[in-house]
């Protein structure tokens, strides 16, 4: 087009993206910056600091280092991410993908069943598991383990962290399965046939062909599920609210409790900034791994 037309098009593009930029700036970028600022003050919703917040430098961060509860919530988050996302969902997702990599009559049904937990809203998932894990001899899980001669347990009281890990694995198998299925389908059948011609058996084929070729998919999956598992709030909050006695207080719940139950906004923000920085670092890895081409 004429020169003026090209210029008009450039302005139009800027104009079209502007509303999105404004919203993201107002509700994400500015708050993120503001979190950093708040973390350097002693702001609180109650007490003397509520009236007149002061700049306290890195005092909140210094306090973090010695705060047992903070370290505990980091540790809980670490185990939670490791066992539910990195190990549980991945192994079961990959296993399901491989088991379903063959046509049989009930395949669509099994596929749908495995995906269902992923589709359920967090609060409903928490409610369903509250029933599953209910204490007393009529609890569903207690009924199941009774077949194996195990006595009824108070699951959420005795094994809280293990239980939320089991709940989160349940929720994420489907997502992992979908990705692994797409990863598997991108491996050409001819490779398997060639490997068989070379005399590889099933387990050798899995270890020497399938796994190495799935590495990019697995890597991407791990990045994604790490950040999204760190961000989990509703599922666990609705089930345990971080209890009992802070034993399921993931770092997201810790931030929420610090800020809205203990009203320590400055301190809560310091925790938030730590999480923010960690997530952004993983995010940058993700950007690099994707090799975003624009």
């Amino acid at each position: 087009m004429s020169v003026s037309f090209t210029r008009r098009e450039a302005w139009r593009n800027r104009f079209l993206i502007l509303p999105s930029v404004l919203l993201l700036a107002a509700f994400v970028v500015y708050p993120a910056g503001f979190a950093v600022y708040t973390s350097l003050t002693n702001e609180a919703l109650s007490g003397p600091a509520a009236m007149n917040p002061r700049f306290v430098g890195f005092a909140n961060y210094a306090k973090l280092l010695t705060d047992q509860n903070f370290w505990r919530s980091l540790a809980i988050t670490f185990w939670f991410v490791l066992f539910s996302a990195i190990i549980g969902q991945l192994v079961l997702g990959l296993l399901s993908a491989m088991l379903l990599n063959r046509r049989f009559a009930l395949r669509p049904l099994v596929n749908a069943i495995i995906l269902m937990p992923n589709a359920v809203p967090e609060v409903v998932a928490a409610l369903m598991w509250a029933s599953m894990l209910a204490a007393g001899e009529y609890g569903t899980l207690n009924n199941i383990v009774a077949w194996f001669g195990v006595d009824p347990q108070r699951w959420l009281t005795s094994f809280p962290l293990t239980m939320i890990i089991i709940v989160n694995i349940w929720r994420g198998i489907g997502f992992a399965m979908i990705l692994m299925t797409s990863g598997l389908s991108s491996i050409s059948d001819e490779l398997y046939e060639a490997a068989r011609m070379d005399g590889a058996n099933t387990s050798q084929i899995f270890r020497r062909i399938t796994l190495p070729l799935l590495v990019p998919t697995i890597f991407l999956y791990l990045l994604v599920s790490t950040v999204s598992t760190i961000a989990i709030f509703g599922l666990v909050f609705a089930l345990t609210r971080g209890g009992p006695a802070g034993s399921t207080e993931l770092v997201g719940i810790y931030i929420y409790n610090q800020s809205f139950n203990s009203y320590q906004l400055g301190y809560g923000s310091a925790v938030a900034v730590v999480v923010l920085v960690f997530s952004l670092l993983v995010g940058m890895l993700y950007v690099r791994a994707l090799k975003v081409d624009v």
């Binding site: 993201l24 107002a26 509700f27 994400v28 970028v29 500015y30 708050p31 993120a32 503001f34 979190a35 708040t38 950040v227 760190i230 961000a231 709030f233 770092v251 997201g252 719940i253 931030i255 929420y256 800020s259 906004l265 809560g268 923000s269 938030a272 900034v273 999480v275 923010l276 997530s279 952004l280 993983v282 995010g283 940058m284 993700y286 950007v287 994707l290 975003v292």
Partner: peptide, 21 residues
């Protein structure tokens, strides 16, 4: 790049400043 990074920020990390906004 920015919108990918925005996606990884846990909403809980923003909740306090968001409340003020």
């Amino acid at each position: 790049y920015a919108i990918i990074l925005v996606r990884v920020i846990p909403p809980t990390a923003l909740i306090v400043p968001l409340y003020k906004v």
